[in-house]
Design a protein around this nucleic acid. Structure first.
Length: 370
DNA sequence: AACTCGGGGAC
DNA sequence: GTCCCAGAGTT
């Protein structure tokens, strides 16, 4: 507290905008995060970390990041490998278009930029999966360029610091926040400053129970002065989640299960899933046998409905009823190229979404593969 | 401007 | 259960 007061007096001749950055940089060097695996790494690793960290917290990302760089150590290695291999290493992290864009961008870098990650902001921004904020973060961290980021942490921090009202996802509010983010940029030490903003948002200016007493911005934080910290930023408008129902057809032939590749766009794009069917098409469980015979040419000798569970997405709830179908044949001729019979153990190593992974693991644990 | 993309941590 | 996280792309 006394140190901060002294800092304010000591820097009284500095312009106020510069003082903000100075406090962030000072705080980062003393209290920020320094041991993250991508900090100080090459631009490929900085890029990868920024993509993985979109809408995903640091603790969740770290194990995925380490496995990913071990498997794909360079842009060239990433570009040369298959999309399936990339998705398999993304399996469970969510927002799978991030992985497909990453893979596509790696190939574009090989073509357009001779395998060297572009250094110019406009070229970085032009890569798929990289928007304004991510391009700025890469530019700041890897190239020490003076660019403003605006991620969830910074939005919350600035909304409080300037007491900006309105949902931060709203265009008008976001425009104000971008303007502030640009205005507050320091002339130098942009990498440390950017990391400081993120860390202060993640560690001190948290969504709930922010640590205002130890915050370096407390002295002139508008929300703190007005006792509006708990009310800012304005929360996202509430809305009721629509609900959908789906039956997962778990076709089992000995140790093998039938999976099909989902289309590139939409939920779980590019991932492998058991065939799904609208439960309204099956008036009774046995209807699934006829359905599978017609669709896949399989003859079922035993059918068992497992208990329904719910998977919640950002915009809807999915009620999943798994239907276990023991089949006695595995048609040689696969109708679609996007279909495959896989040993359940192998299926767990491929690109599957989390609810499918949980189902397969329960299947193995329950020894229901007979 | 409004929607669509997962999954998990924190509460 | 709710809310949000190192957001971007599409319409």
């Amino acid at each position: 507290m006394r140190e901060r007061a002294y800092a304010l007096i000591k820097n009284r001749n500095k312009p106020r905008l510069e003082l903000f950055a100075h406090r962030i940089i000072d705080w980062q060097q003393q209290h920020g995060r320094h041991g993250l695996p991508w900090q100080g790494a090459d631009v490929y690793r900085v890029w990868l970390s920024e993509i993985m960290l979109q809408q995903t917290q640091v603790v969740t990302v770290i194990p995925y990041y380490l496995r990913f760089v071990a498997r794909f150590p360079t842009i060239a290695a990433l570009a040369a490998d298959s999309e399936d291999a990339v998705l398999a290493h993304w399996s469970g992290l969510g927002y799978y278009w991030r992985a497909r864009n990453l893979h596509r961008a790696a190939q574009l870098i090989m073509q357009r930029h001779g395998g060297k990650f572009p250094q110019h902001f406009e070229d970085i921004l032009a890569l798929p999966g990289i928007g304004r904020s991510t391009a700025a973060a890469i530019s700041a961290f890897a190239f020490h360029e003076r660019r403003a980021i605006l991620d969830g942490n910074v939005k919350r921090l600035l909304a409080r610091y300037h007491a900006i009202e309105g949902y931060t996802g709203e265009k008008k509010t976001e425009a104000q926040l971008w303007q502030q983010a640009e205005a507050l940029l320091p002339k130098r030490d942009v990498a440390v400053y950017t990391q400081g903003l993120m860390d202060l948002g993640a560690l001190v200016c948290t969504r709930s129970k922010p640590q205002c007493p130890i915050c370096p911005l407390q002295a002139d934080c508008a929300a703190y002065q007005n006792e509006r910290v708990a009310q800012l930023p304005t929360p996202r408008p509430r809305k009721v989640l629509p609900e959908r129902h789906s039956t997962f057809l778990l076709l089992l032939n000995g140790p093998d299960i039938l999976l099909e590749k989902r289309p590139g766009s939409g939920i779980w794009g590019g991932l492998w899933c058991p065939p799904q069917v609208d439960p309204r098409l099956l008036s009774k469980v046995e209807d699934a046998n006829a359905y599978c015979l017609q669709q896949f040419g399989t003859e079922t000798i035993h059918t068992l409905a497992l208990s329904t569970f719910t998977h919640t997405f950002t915009h809807f709830k999915l009620h999943i009823t798994p239907l276990l179908l023991q089949v006695i044949n595995k048609p040689k001729q696969i109708q679609e190229p996007g279909m495959v019979w896989l040993d359940v153990d192998d299926a767990l190593q491929t690109a599957i979404p989390t609810p499918v992974r949980k189902l397969l693991q329960e299947l193995l644990a329950g020894r229901r593969l007979v």
